[in-house]
Design a protein around this nucleic acid. Structure first.
Length: 366
DNA sequence: GTAATCACG
DNA sequence: ACGTACGTGATTACA
């Protein structure tokens, strides 16, 4: 990890020099305000720069990525951002968080912080360790089993929220997809675009996948168009087509909102409540946000209920059978264990079984 | 203390 | 015309 931090340091220094040379001035690259002024006031690389609600120039990744192809300085800035983030939040912070007494990092899980029933993790947060980028994965390599007798085991639910949507809505099309085991995003694409499964292109699947995620968030045409980088009109058509093909989902969403209006809360499969104060607000924006919360909370919250029950049952087995394997981390739909190698044949099936049977739904869990 | 940004599910 | 996907935490700048 120290090597990686040093490598990042070097890279950040070089990028800083290059960027300041291109800008013709030195400034604090970590200050979004200073950066916005350099790019948009001094260099004027954009006709009509977007601003945040406080009047500053927007310099987030999405904005910079759009400008990067035409401006090398912006490309370098994005590289600088990535390197700085990895160094400050992970490469420097994690070694500093090691407890002298144990030689390990220990996070704190809170059980009563989130609105949906998820756990959260802090000091340090071990639920947002990088994985998506190649260099982010360098950080993951620092996490190792306790000794050569152990291996790390990671077990995660496959598409848990979408399966919960299928079970709660009883939508036949979605249930069918999960029961037959076809790729659910491909199946969704086939329905939305009205083609055979074999004729679904990667592009169609990508869009259908975003729709499926969007459903769990209380989809909006604007949100979908932003995520997919498509015209809002196209997003409207995709969503309309989706609800035509999966009418049970629309009914479930309508019923959930009606329940929230009547009772003032929504609930998960175990009865965990989220109160939705603004569900009848006369302000469209406020009400719409409340409606999305009402849709999302039972889905995200039921998944949280499920994995918590699994954790309890797995812990009971590990202690009851006096196993050496230890449960280390929970990352929302994933459990990580320090697996004693000799216990593999016993622990793997047990973990899988407990995760699958934590809560019984009318949809297969994988 | 707040805003902006970005890491994760 | 407005302003929007859900849930989090850490870091940095800045008032």
């Amino acid at each position: 990890m120290a090597d990686f931090a040093a490598q990042l340091s070097k890279e950040i220094d070089t990028l800083e020099k290059t960027i300041c040379r291109m800008a013709g001035t030195t400034f604090n690259l970590n200050s979004p305000r200073q950066l916005g002024q350099i790019l948009f006031d001094v260099m004027k690389i954009c006709e009509a720069p977007k601003k945040t609600k406080t009047g500053q120039y927007t310099t987030d990744e999405q904005t910079l990525a759009a400008l990067a192809p035409d401006h090398e300085i912006v490309q370098r800035l994005l590289e600088h951002r990535t390197a700085s983030k990895l160094k400050s939040t992970y490469a420097d912070a994690l070694p500093a968080a090691i407890w002298p007494r144990t030689g390990r990092v220990h996070t704190t899980y809170n059980q009563v912080m989130t609105t949906t029933g998820r756990l959260n993790s802090q000091n340090p947060n071990l639920q947002n360790i990088p994985i998506r980028s190649e260099r982010g994965q360098e950080i993951r390599k620092a996490f190792v089993p306790r000794s050569s007798e152990y291996r790390l085991l990671s077990a995660d639910y496959s598409q848990i929220e979408l399966r919960i949507i299928a079970a709660l809505s009883r939508e036949p099309g979605l249930l069918e997809a999960f029961r037959t085991g076809v790729d659910v995003h491909t199946a969704t694409a086939a329905k939305v675009y009205g083609v055979f499964l074999e004729l679904v292109t990667p592009e169609m699947r990508r869009k259908a996948k975003m729709v499926n995620y969007g459903i769990a968030y209380g989809i909006s045409a604007f949100g979908l168009s932003q995520r997919l980088g498509i015209p809002r009109k196209e997003a409207v058509e995709i969503i309309q087509q989706y609800f035509t093909q999966f009418p049970g989902i629309r009914k479930y969403m309508d019923d959930t909102m009606a329940f929230a209006r009547e009772h003032g809360y929504v609930q998960t499969v175990t009865g965990r409540r989220r109160y939705i104060r603004d569900i009848s607000s006369s302000n469209n924006t406020v009400r719409s946000a409340a409606e999305r919360n009402a849709i999302n909370a039972p889905i995200q919250g039921s998944a949280a209920d499920m994995i918590k029950i699994a954790m309890i049952n797995i812990h009971r087995e590990l202690t009851g059978r006096k196993l050496k394997t230890r449960m280390l981390l929970q990352v929302h739909d994933e459990l990580v264990f320090d697996l004693h190698t000799a216990e593999e044949k016993e622990v793997l099936p047990m973990v899988e079984e407990k995760m699958k049977t934590a809560i019984t739904l009318d949809v297969p869990l994988v």
